[in-house]
Structures are given as C-alpha cells and as structure tokens.
Simulated assay, not measured.
Amino acid sequence: MSRLSEHVLIVLVTLWVGAMWSIGYIVAPTLFGMLGDRTLAGNVAGRLFSIVGWIGIGASVYVLGFLFVRLGWRAFRSGVFWVVAAMLLATLASQFGIQPLMAQMKANAWPREVMDTVMRTRFTTWHGISSVLYLVQSVLGLFLVLGTRKLLAR
C-alpha cells in the first residue's frame, strides 16, 4: 500500500478526531459562554456539529476502505475497524436521526423558542442523548488515533 494512502489516513483521522474535540469541547462551550443569545449559540454550534458529522462520514468511509484494501477480510478482526464502525454508526444516528428530530422540534415551536414550550423536556432529553453519544465518539476517537498509529507501525 502506498505511503500516500497512509498519509491521507493520518490526515483524515487527525481532522476528524481533532474537529470533534475542538468543536465539542472548546468552540461550543465558548459560544455559549460568550454569546448572550443562547439560541444563536445553539444554532452556530449545531451547524458546526453537522460539519463535523460530514467530516466523520467521509473520513470513516476512507478508513474502512483503507482497512479492506490493506487487510482484506482480516479487517473484521482489527480493533480499528470496529472503533471506526462504532463511530460511523454514532455519527449516522446523530446526523440523520437525532439532529433532524431536534430541528423539527425547534421548527414546531416557532415563533417561540423550543425551551419556552411544552417540548422543552423532550428536547432536553434528546440533547442529553446526543451529548452522551458525542462523548462516546470522542473517547472512541482516542482509541482510533492510537490504533491508527499501531496499525501503520505494522
């Protein structure tokens, strides 16, 4: 396998996991801390999380393809494969399940804010589920970074 494909792998894993960590644990809290309008902060953070989700989908497709080209069917025995698969599933659940559901709740609340309606509890519950899923992905990202390093050392 070419060195270029290995370099692309490293760059994509770094971009994906780095974006998750920086947006989720630096940028989003800063937005909520600095902007007086929580709705605006939430909308900006939501857009950034969506971008991170698309980066994750693209990166995971590349990583899984890389593993299959490099390892063939043995990819299924690779810890990196299962970490990426879990992260991809979590990303897809968030991107195409949870986030659209939360957006629909916001739209249904209009012209009021969702937190000022009877949907507050339901929205808060889904936001909590989304946050836990993101935390799990972030921890898996650590294993992905370390596993990628180990994979390429072989």
Rank of each mutant, 00 (worst) to 15 (best):
L71N: 08
F49L: 13
F76W: 13
M115H: 07
V132H: 09
S22V: 15
Y62H: 05
I55R: 00
V44F: 09
Y25L: 15
N108P: 01
S94G: 13
A153T: 14
F66R: 02
V114E: 00
M115C: 02
F32V: 08
R149E: 06
T39W: 11
L9F: 15
L152K: 06
V139D: 07
L101C: 03
F81V: 07
I51G: 10
A28P: 05
I23D: 01
G56Y: 00
F96R: 10
S138F: 03
S22R: 04
M87K: 03
G53D: 14
G97D: 04
R154K: 13
V52E: 00
S94L: 07
M1A: 12
T30F: 10
A75F: 06
V80S: 01
I55E: 00
L88P: 01
G97Q: 02
V61F: 14
S78G: 09
I57R: 01
L31Y: 07
N43K: 13
G36N: 12
T14E: 07
L144I: 11
F49C: 07
A153N: 13
R112T: 14
V136P: 01
W54E: 09
I26S: 10
A75Y: 04
V118S: 15
L9Y: 04
V69R: 14
K106L: 04
V11N: 04
V145S: 04
F81P: 00
G18C: 08
W16H: 05
L12D: 00
L67R: 02
V114W: 00
G36W: 10
Y134I: 03
T117R: 04
G72D: 10
T117Y: 03
V63Q: 02
A59K: 00
F123M: 07
T148A: 11
A93E: 05
G141L: 04
F49Y: 11
V11K: 02
F68C: 04
L146F: 14
Q137T: 14
Y62D: 02
T121F: 11
G79V: 12
V61L: 15
S60W: 00
V136K: 07
W110V: 09
A19L: 12
P100Y: 09
M115R: 12
R149G: 13
G58K: 06
T91S: 10
G18W: 02
I57K: 02
I57D: 02
A75E: 06
A59P: 00
Y134G: 02
F49A: 01
